[in-house]
Design a protein around this nucleic acid. Structure first.
Lengths: 356, 356
DNA sequence: ATAATAAATGCAATCGATTGTTAGCTCAAA
DNA sequence: TTTGAGCTAACAATCGATTGCATTTATTAT
């Protein structure tokens, strides 16, 4: 499987960690008290300008690096934000993290990341581990299995802000950063109708998850408002909206006596899968079957025909979530605040649905 | 842009953090000393069985959660791994992180993530910030701009293990987890030759970055070994191997008097871009132009024709990197060890290069 | 020159968990 | 009854930075 090459040049002495430089060392060196060193390094106003200069210069010479653990312990607040999301290597979530990390770092915060893999137990464990690390705030996108949210209670008790993003709980006072899934689902469906679709199928996700539930509601409402029938036969329930599930669903749909002429998929992956399978079966897209997805994943631009979709401002959501946490300490709110930020989505019309 | 809805139910009392439960509280409650509580919670052998039971039960009842900051401070080692990579939202790197996080969490470690965005300054800042957080180990994939590695010296001095992964420095004693880029480049090129290509172009990345340098060397060596000419005109130097760069390069190549009949791209993105552009220009793939990429990104399976590529065991690399760090404390090595783990790659032959 | 004010610095406790050393206790064998 | 093995558990120092309060020094006004 792989080769290993080991070389070990020198022993013993190096095994001991060298004593690190602390403010006490600097204090001794410069004949100041540790308090003065500490204040000088933090540019405290009660310390003289030249003193600050001198101390900071020496600190640099000595390669002094503050111990954030000690500071956090003393202050009882750490400049760390915890994240719990289902999967890091999904385009939407990776972008979400990117936005969080960038914003946090600018503010001098570190980000600890955990992934639940959509398992409830993992989520609970992660939330505990982040608490143990005494994060200053928590950003969460719920796992598929999560129905109970009591694992977050301890944060509220300690007034540690929680921001739920995208996949959020129904009943939990906290910050929320979401998109208008209902409106997005409505518009995506409406778009297909405008392109002349009369029988539109829907690839639906797990219905206890807010985003999938609302996208479906939007779909249903758009049909009703347009005077089209809602046909349960055309609503394909899926667990993960994966490539495989998308294929199976498309297969089923195409076999119907009265197959659909449009598909709104709650996730791009399944939509792309539908395109590929339908093409394989000789169905013309978009003429015979118009398709629209959700997320604007990279594959949606590459598939042929390119996939129409709903874009989800992932990085922006991460950025706003982080800002909520950074602001929290400034504002006089407790963690049980219920503040919802709803971002706009954008329908991106590409070739998989453009008939005119 | 977005709507905000704020509701604030209750004030004052909740603003103060409630005092957290500590081992001292448990000690008082149970009439034990804090030392006993601490040892009991850690299942120390010198504490009686029933005592441990009783203490752990009470801890649970009181919702006690250990303060990892305090423990780390005292022990001078934190169960935290720091990561510095260029970009989180790139498929390869997202998978790398996934592998790291999973392995670390199984061992009870947290993962702090930072991204350099391929900027040297960011990388330096991040490496410092992670040091300040007193991580127990560091996993790094170097940014494009990095040529000097002195920002890692402090880790070596403190015997904090560093694992470089994928994009690694030339001269720095540490752990390294890499793939055999030379062999991969060689085999990819050889594959095109076997398919009958006589004039093979190469999309090359920045040559001071080990992975791109070696892929190119592999390409050149394969040509030479097969008695083909190395034509500098066919080697396209690119900064980021992006979609746009791929397109421009393909444009240039197709305009040559004697255009290539094969392309080996050091990254999938540029390869996909080449496919799309060449198709648009009426060039038949793979008949007139065979293409192979590198990374096995999701888009490589979706593009038409599907892209042949070299798969990079990203999660596995993350897993192994993490294990190196976890093992480090166990083994009697200092951080200046030089241990290289080289993983195999796999050539995946899809339609963009299969002529026979 | 002197009192009064402002500026600069130091003292010592604190955050929560860990651990080497010491001390108390139980039980059994002699 | 005595003694020591074997358990249990406590004391107190430690990790490094922070900060309210006290104290010293410098500066200004009168």
């Amino acid at each position: 499987m792989f080769r290993n090459i080991v070389a070990q040049p020198n022993f013993s002495v190096y095994l001991m960690k060298k004593k690190e430089v602390t403010i006490y060392d600097l204090a001794k060196e410069l004949n100041y008290s540790p308090s003065t060193i500490s204040r000088a390094l933090n540019n405290h106003k009660s310390i003289g300008k030249k003193t600050i200069k001198k101390i900071q210069k020496t600190a640099e010479e000595f390669n002094y690096r503050p111990n954030a653990l000690a500071a956090s312990l003393r202050n009882n607040t750490s400049r760390t934000i915890g994240i719990t999301i289902p999967k890091i290597n999904h385009p939407f979530q990776a972008s979400l993290i990117t936005g969080i990390e960038k914003t946090a770092r600018k503010a001098g915060y570190n980000v600890i990341i955990t992934q639940s893999d959509d398992k409830y137990k993992n989520e609970v464990d992660n939330v505990k581990a982040l608490y143990d690390a005494r994060v200053g705030g928590l950003i969460v996108s719920l796992g598929m299995e999560t129905r109970d949210t009591s694992h977050f209670d301890q944060y509220v008790k300690q007034n540690i802000p929680i921001v739920f993003v995208d996949r959020v709980p129904e009943n939990f006072n906290s910050y929320r950063v979401i998109i208008d899934n209902h409106a997005a689902g409505y518009r995506a469906t409406k778009h297909l109708i405008e392109q002349g679709c009369k029988r539109i199928a829907h690839f639906a996700g797990a219905q206890h998850v807010n985003v999938y539930n609302l996208r479906k509601k939007g779909y249903v409402d758009a049909l009703i408002d347009s005077g089209l029938q809602v046909d349960e036969e055309l609503i394909m329930d899926m667990k993960t909206l994966s490539f495989e599930e998308g294929k199976k669903a498309t297969e089923k749909l195409l076999k119907l006596d009265n197959p659909p002429d449009g598909i709104f998929s709650a996730i791009d992956t399944a939509a792309v899968s539908a395109i590929l399978y339908a093409k394989e079966k000789g169905v013309k897209i978009p003429e015979e079957l118009a398709i629209i997805g959700f997320n604007d994943d990279p594959i949606s631009r590459i598939v042929e025909p390119t996939l129409s979709t709903v874009s989800h401002p992932a990085q922006k959501m991460g950025e706003i979530s982080t800002k909520r946490i950074l602001e929290h300490s400034t504002r006089k709110l407790d963690a049980a605040v219920s503040e919802i930020t709803m971002l706009d989505t954008e329908i991106i019309i590409r070739n998989s649905s453009k008939r005119k």
